[in-house]
Design a protein around this nucleic acid. Structure first.
Lengths: 199, 199
DNA sequence: AGTAAATGAATGAATGGCCATTCATTGTAT
DNA sequence: ATACAATGAATGGCCATTCATTCATTTACT
């Protein structure tokens, strides 16, 4: 009988190896060794190397989406909702740097490699931001001259770039809370001093 | 005598090929064919495949940095300066989608691959944003409780994410000006309606 | 000027190493 | 004893890099 734990052991190992070496420099034998499994065993659970990458991506992003959706469902204030999203994102990526790196790489390369793979989970993930903004607009809390479809890119992009440099330049300097606070400050109220808003 | 134009012909070809296939799937012979040059010729101008990648990156980013610095030097209002930066970035990436893709990939993989390569040009590029913010703070135009070192990540990340999806989801929907305007709106004044700022 | 060496750029076929994938064999549980 | 999971050595294809050779241009000599 196929071992369900073996599947996830391979996923975890692959996440680690992909993060460390990048997809193309990761060898199947590296993943096998990390998962304490024979090379051939991997092919009992996955079709090929890309399949592992996509599985890592979909499964891990899927978990985050589910978690965030659950947390958001207990909140109604769109301001708080953005804060929850930002903090959750940063905490997750900080806790799981391997995953953060896989997302970085995967996102930028898979579309090119596998035309028919649409990053569904990921789209769902970023669309959460657009949904929150739309909600806030309906409630007259957010400005209506903001396009949710553009703003979601800004919000995710900002978080993602912070995750990217987490290891190198931000580590030790700032906490997740500080960064999240700064992002919310800017995103909600901007960087202008009130005096200068209409000059 | 070595042909100076051949060097740049290879750079251009490599940018194209890297963008289309990604660094790892790009073959030297692809680049050679694109540049209308023999495979071996490439090694008269570059040490190896990574060297081509780094050269593409440094040269192209270097050009942009020089251009933006020049344009910014003619402007003193920090608000306008951010606008110039955003618009210039988006225009450049839209005009040169190949470059945009190379930057995306390069930025996320090179540090892992080549430990002693520090992306100097790129650091210079993003630091421009931090400098503009600091300047605005000195002039009492920008809030002092914003960390330029974090805010620059947000600003660049937002622009970069927009560039990433330019081909797929934004093409045809929005102009550079619209996106730049939206980013400035948010970055300068936030998405909150004035009524809700202190609720 | 005309011809012959010399220099070095350009070529692309051949090499060699790497590594995803396969599959014959072995292990194990029922 | 059967069925299926697991193994890992062997295979085969790919492709960065090399280098012996060709080609083109410049220099030197009569």
């Amino acid at each position: 009988m196929k071992d369900i734990t073996k599947h996830s052991k391979i996923i975890t190992a692959a996440t680690k190896v992909f993060a460390k070496k990048g997809f193309f420099n990761a060898r199947i034998s590296d993943i096998a060794k990390e998962a304490k499994v024979a090379d051939g065993t991997i092919y009992l659970y996955f079709n090929n190397k890309y399949d592992i990458l996509i599985s890592v991506f979909e499964e891990e992003i899927g978990k985050i989406v589910a978690q965030i959706k659950k947390t958001l469902s207990e909140e109604t204030d769109p301001r708080k909702m953005l804060e929850i999203y930002a903090t959750k994102h940063l905490l997750t990526m900080k806790k799981n740097k391997n995953l953060a790196e896989v997302i970085q790489i995967e996102l930028r390369q898979t579309n090119k490699l596998i035309k028919d793979y649409r990053n569904n989970k990921f789209i769902e993930y970023t669309d959460l931001v657009a949904d929150i903004i739309s909600l806030g607009q309906k409630q007259n809390i957010y400005r209506r001259d903001i396009e949710p479809g553009i703003a979601k890119r800004f919000f995710f992009g900002a978080l993602d770039e912070v995750s990217r440099v987490w290891n190198t330049s931000l580590e030790g300097h700032y906490t997740v809370e500080q960064i999240s606070e700064q992002l919310l400050k800017i995103f909600l109220s901007g960087i202008l001093l009130p005096d200068n808003i209409n000059t």
